[in-house]
Computed example of a mutant assay.
Amino acid sequence: MSSTSLWIGLAALLGLYLLYNIFFVLLHEKILFQSDEVSDDYEFSFTFQHEEILLSPSENVRLHGLLLKSDSSNGLVLYFHGNRGHLGRWGRIADEIRTRHGYDVLAMDYRGYGKSRGERSEPLLYQDAELVYDYAQELGYDHIIIYGRSLGTAIATHLAAKRKASHLILETPMTTLREVIPTLNFLLLYKSGLKYEFNSLSRIDRISCPITIFHGMEDAVVPYELGHKLYVEASHSDKKIITIKEGKHNNLDTFDIYQQAMERILN
């Protein structure tokens, strides 16, 4: 190979590298938040009873949620869902918690999801979570379990570090956003250009309630090692990690070990 061809090849690789950085910095929010909005008059096709909640923390901002009430409530599960889909999907999962365990469940869509509106940022997502928690207290709930799923684990961990909770449940949690995709550690040139950190690792040692982590060893989205690392870093004495050997990212609730652990926590 001639020196000219070598330099052309290196220049092409450098160009691809720079394009990768530009592409990710510009589009990482769209990749991270796979949201879909619905109209204000959209009707959910649920067969179960539910109450729709609307909160307005500021002008032009609206947070939409579902409150599912049990016949004889043992408390409230405050549920923060994953990054894909609105409450039309996650409401059914919330109803399973209500039906199986006799808890009321409050689940909110993030800004830009479902009927929720408003500009989105990491600090604003955290503020919204605190607002929803305060709203739950205004409804009279004092036994509140905070549950986070995937992306929602970062928001749930932040909230549990800021507010009183009876238990923190994390399903397929990340440590930080960069650690979810290991290649970001060396491929991203413009790390400061990333808008989101979701650094649960820096908050997990400030949790003052029992912690349960669920993670599958075959999770190809958020590697099991990240959930285990979060477990190790948690300082609370009452902490557990439920390892599901054949569990993937979206099927942990199909395993008996998950349901048995949830039964112990909630009942």
Rank of each mutant, 00 (worst) to 15 (best):
S2V: 07
S2K: 13
S2N: 15
S3N: 15
S3H: 15
S3A: 15
T4I: 10
T4F: 03
L10K: 10
A11S: 10
A11N: 01
L13I: 15
L13E: 11
L13M: 14
Y17T: 09
V25T: 10
V25M: 10
L27E: 02
K30W: 11
I31T: 09
D36A: 11
E37Q: 11
D41K: 13
Y42Q: 03
F44D: 02
S45T: 04
F46W: 12
F46E: 01
T47H: 08
I53Y: 02
L54V: 05
S56F: 07
P57G: 03
N60A: 04
R62M: 08
L66Q: 05
L68Q: 00
S70E: 06
S72Q: 13
S72P: 03
N74R: 09
L76Y: 01
L76I: 00
V77P: 05
Y79H: 01
N83G: 08
L87S: 05
L87Q: 00
R89Y: 12
G91H: 11
G91F: 12
R92M: 12
D95Q: 13
I97E: 00
R100N: 14
Y103K: 03
V105N: 06
L106N: 00
M108A: 07
Y113S: 01
S116L: 06
Y126G: 03
D128K: 03
Y133E: 01
A136K: 10
G140L: 06
I145V: 15
I145F: 10
I145P: 08
R149M: 12
A154P: 06
I155F: 07
I155W: 00
I155A: 03
L159K: 07
K162L: 11
S166D: 14
L168S: 05
E171A: 08
T176F: 09
T176P: 04
L177G: 09
L177I: 14
E179P: 11
V180I: 12
L184E: 01
N185H: 15
L187M: 11
G193T: 05
K195Y: 11
Y196Q: 01
L201G: 06
S202T: 09
R203A: 09
I204N: 05
R206N: 14
R206F: 14
R206D: 14
I207S: 02
I207K: 08
H215E: 07
D219H: 06
D219P: 02
D219L: 09
D219W: 08
V221H: 06
V221Y: 07
V222K: 00
Y224F: 14
L226R: 02
L226V: 04
K229V: 13
Y231R: 04
V232R: 12
A234R: 10
S235K: 13
S235W: 02
K240C: 11
I241M: 11
I242L: 07
I244M: 05
I244Y: 01
K245N: 01
E246H: 10
E246L: 12
E246V: 05
E246C: 04
G247K: 08
K248W: 07
N250T: 13
D256F: 07
I257N: 07
A261G: 00
E263T: 15
R264T: 15
